[in-house]
Every structure is written in structure tokens, then in C-alpha cells.
Design a protein around this nucleic acid. Structure first.
Length: 415
RNA sequence: CGGGGAGUGGCUCAGUUUGGCUAGAGCGCUUGGUUUGGGACCAAGAGGUCGUGAGUUCAAGUCUCACCUCCCCGACCA
């Protein structure tokens, strides 16, 4: 991508609406813009990051044997009345009446919808186990939207649902999902805590939350300084670790994922049964598994930044490399930069070429701000030595490389 | 919803206390020129119903009332 043709509206100053680090960086680096409180548009850079995250999730979900589908965002209110969650969820759900007088809502989550679907289409234990997942926009009329994408009224969620004949099956799927979640968050460059949690509104028995320590986090987690075991602040009134009696440290965290063993809560209500081997009706055992996909962006930013801007983990960076031809007067520099650009792209890398007629300082500042993992700099050093400078955004490490060896050097650095 | 803060060109803000003439600055944007390794400089421009509506006054960005929006703290959640 040529920077001059891209829509990357970076901001030199911090918009007053932003308080948390991640929110500031999202606005300054041109990832998102607010439409109204709690509602954001993803600009090209933000959209790229989102796609990267979604693809990591897809890969790991598919590896678990989950199959992707897409449910409707528009839902009939009656399914919520049927499950009894209608009153519980209350005003958090956007509701309205259409021209035919039907009572509709915008889906805040999809247990009702998916259980209804399965009830009508799965009849035999032979069709189990089954795991379905979707990546979709959810709507919640939050009491107070906050910190940009951390708590918004329209957000993207990955929600998966597992269906098993028995508890053993659920345990297996649940464990696989838990491991998949760990891999997903690690690949996103996140250092996260896994805690046993209260199933709350979802119902069911066992549940785990995935929490990212971050200054602006809204949830407090207690972590044992010795064994590292973490517990929810709400659950635990004790001041010392149950296991090793060490002191617990208080951490502010952002919840990025939550998985639940639902058991038969929904299948019983909706009579989602299958015939088992004995030929009798058996309520399907369910699990559900959520990831706040759009929320991962601020979570990643909270953990990957420095004074100059973002330091993207490689797998979720909007591009992998930015090329900075400085010394605008030199056509040799520009041409060399363009050759490197084409060369790198041919090798499958995602590259941003800063062809703008800007001062070196502007290019450096913008490059650091948007935080792509690698910078290829062509300037004074190139004129002197004929070599390009390759610089790692994260730690500032840099080396001079012959233009023809750049591709090789970069693949080494990125691996 | 309760408590606190804020709305003035695209962005950051001054001006409001004590009402006064064509509403300012920096950044950004346009044109021309000089620059070119860390947001450079010179010149000339474009861009504003001062959040909205009523009111007070000879006169309102500034005073009064109502409303709207945004941010922060609390209950809620991925």
C-alpha cells in the first residue's frame, strides 16, 4: 500500500475525548473514529487489525473442529421470553417493534437462537458432538460505554456453542476450547490470566474468564505473587492464596474471553433433545465460548505500546513492514524504496510504502505511532553506504543491510 | 440513573470572571518558494450560525433558563 493513497488519518495531538492509553492510541493512529458514544467506525488500519485477529480465531477454532456459521443479528423477542432471560437482561437489549407489529431485538448474544436452531435440526446422538461458531456484531445498550472499544454498544464477538450427548463430551470440548483460547491470546501478543468465574446470567456450572492486566481495566483480579494462581476479586474475600498462603496482588484487568459449561440449561427450556443409543430422549449438553473480538484491540494496545506509540505484535499488525524513503530530493532513494516494496510484497509480506512528500521527522513519528513491527529506512545511511537500515519498532534494534538482502534479513527478523 | 467535568474552524486550546466594534492562536488543509535523519521555515489563502432553543440588554462566545452531546467515577458485561 502506498501511504499517500491510504486513508490513515493520524493525529498529532490527543483528542480530549480519550482518557485510556489504548483509546488515545486508537484515535491517534487512525484505527477508529467515534460516531456516537459507544459506537465506532473501523478505519482501514483498524479493520486490518480486526481481520488479523479474526483469522487467528478462525484458525484456532477450525483446529478444534468447530465450524463457522452466521446467525442473524435481528431476533424475535419471544425466544428471550421463553428462556426467561428477557427480564434478566432488561434494558441492555435493544428492542423495537417492526411495521408488522412484531417484537424484535438486536442480539446481545445467541444462546436462545442457536438452541432453537439445533432443536429443529438435530435429532440423533449420531449428529453429535457439534461445535459451531460465528464472528458477528452484537448489540448491548450499555449503561455506560467506556474507553472506546473496551465497552461499546455495538461490538464484535466470537461466540461458539458446543453440543454433546454427555458430560464427558462437554468436558473434552471445554478443555479443547480453553487451550485454543490460550493459543489465540498468545498469538495476539497478549499476556492473559485465566480464572475460574461465576457463570452469572449465562447459567450453568463451570466457567472460566480470560483477563488481560491493563491500567484501565474495569475488573479486579487477585493474583498470587508466588504460584500465579488468579481469582476474581468478587469471588474471593480472602487476603491470601488458598494454595500457598502467599500474598495476593490486586490487578486491574480487561475481560477478553469467557467460556461456560451450560449443561442442559437451554436445551431443557427449548426441548433440544436427541435420541441416544438406547432410543430415548436425552437433553443436549451445551457449552458456550465467547471472545470480545473488537475488545482485543484495546487489550493488545494496553500491553503493546511505548512513549512513541503502538508496538504491534507481528501477527496482528495492520502491515508487517513500513518503508521510509527520506531525502525527498533523491530519486534514487525513492526508486530503491519502491523496488524493495515490490520485492517484499512478492514474497508475501504486507508492506506500507511511505511515499508522502513529508519531512523525515514526520515519517518517523507517524511510523512509530502506527507501530508496524519493522521499518526499512532509506536516507543518509543509504547515500553513504548504499545500505538500507532495518529497524525493529519494539526494541529499536537496527542493522544496515544491502538492498538485495533485505528480504532475507526481514524474514529472519520476523520469525 | 446519581456524582463530577467539558462543548469556540478538521485537531489542541485562548477569550467567558468584569457583556462592547469585522471572534483569535498553534497545528492541520490549499497555492508558491526554501528545506529534508525525528512533527522545519517564509509568504499568500480557504475554513466559524462560538452545542441547540428561548430570554435579558442599545449590545451576548460572555448573563439567565431549558434542552442536547461528549468525557470521568459508581451498578452491568465480551
Amino acid at each position: 500500500m502506498y501511504w499517500s493513497k491510504a486513508f490513515i488519518p493520524t493525529l498529532k495531538e490527543t483528542p480530549q475525548e480519550a482518557e485510556s492509553i489504548s483509546h488515545r492510541l486508537m484515535l491517534r493512529s487512525g484505527l477508529v473514529r467515534m460516531l456516537i458514544s459507544g459506537v465506532y467506525s473501523y478505519l482501514p488500519l483498524g479493520f486490518r487489525v480486526l481481520s488479523k485477529i479474526e483469522n487467528i480465531i478462525r484458525q484456532e477454532m477450525n483446529a478444534c473442529g468447530a465450524e463457522e456459521f452466521l446467525l442473524s443479528a435481528l431476533q424475535p423477542e419471544e425466544l428471550w421470553v421463553k428462556s426467561g432471560r428477557d427480564e434478566e437482561i432488561g434494558e441492555v437489549m435493544f428492542r423495537f417493534i417492526d411495521r408488522r407489529g412484531r417484537r424484535l431485538c438486536l442480539g446481545p448474544t445467541h444462546e436462545e437462537i442457536v438452541t432453537d436452531l439445533i432443536k429443529n435440526n438435530v435429532f440423533s446422538y449420531r449428529q453429535l458432538p457439534l461445535i459451531l461458531y460465528q464472528i458477528q456484531v452484537k448489540f448491548r445498550d450499555e449503561i455506560r460505554p467506556r474507553f472506546g472499544l473496551v465497552r461499546s454498544c455495538e461490538f464484535i464477538m466470537k461466540d461458539a456453542y458446543s453440543f454433546d450427548l454427555d458430560q464427558e463430551g462437554l468436558n473434552r470440548n471445554y478443555k479443547n476450547m480453553l487451550e485454543a483460547y490460550k493459543r489465540i491470546f498468545k498469538r495476539c501478543g497478549l499476556d492473559c490470566l485465566v480464572i475460574e468465574a461465576d457463570p452469572g446470567l449465562m447459567g450453568g456450572s463451570l466457567s472460566h474468564e480470560f483477563m488481560v492486566p491493563a491500567e484501565s481495566g474495569e475488573d479486579i483480579v487477585l493474583r498470587c505473587q508466588d504460584c500465579g494462581i488468579s481469582v476474581s476479586y468478587l469471588d474471593e474475600k480472602l487476603a491470601r492464596c488458598k494454595k500457598c498462603n502467599e500474598k495476593l496482588e490486586k490487578l486491574n484487568t480487561i475481560e477478553i474471553g469467557h467460556i461456560f459449561q451450560l449443561g442442559t440449561k437451554y436445551s431443557k427450556i427449548f426441548q433440544a433433545n436427541v435420541l441416544n443409543q438406547q432410543g430415548s430422549q436425552s437433553a443436549i449438553i451445551m457449552g458456550c465460548y465467547g471472545i470480545g473480538v473488537s475488545r482485543l484491540i484495546p487489550a493488545i494496545l494496553e500491553q503493546n505500546n511505548d512513549a512513541n506509540g503502538i508496538t504491534w505484535p507481528r501477527e496482528v499488525a495492520p502491515f508487517e513492514v513500513v518503508i521510509l524513503p527520506l531525502e525527498a530530493g533523491s530519486s534514487k532513494i525513492y526508486e530503491t524504496g519502491e523496488n524493495i516494496y515490490n520485492d517484499l510484497r512478492k514474497s508475501g509480506l504486507e508492506v506500507l510504502f511511505d511515499d508522502r512528500q513529508e519531512q523525515a521527522g514526520v515519517k518517523f513519528k507517524d511510523a512509530d505511532l502506527i507501530g508496524l513491527p519493522l521499518q526499512v529506512i532509506l536516507g543518509k545511511n543509504f547515500i553513504k553506504s548504499g545500505k538500507a537500515e532495518i529497524k525493529l519498532r519494539r526494541n529499536g534494534y537496527s542493522s544496515l543491510v544491502e538492498p538485495e538482502n533485505i528480504r532475507q534479513e526481514i524474514s529472519k527478523l520476523l520469525s
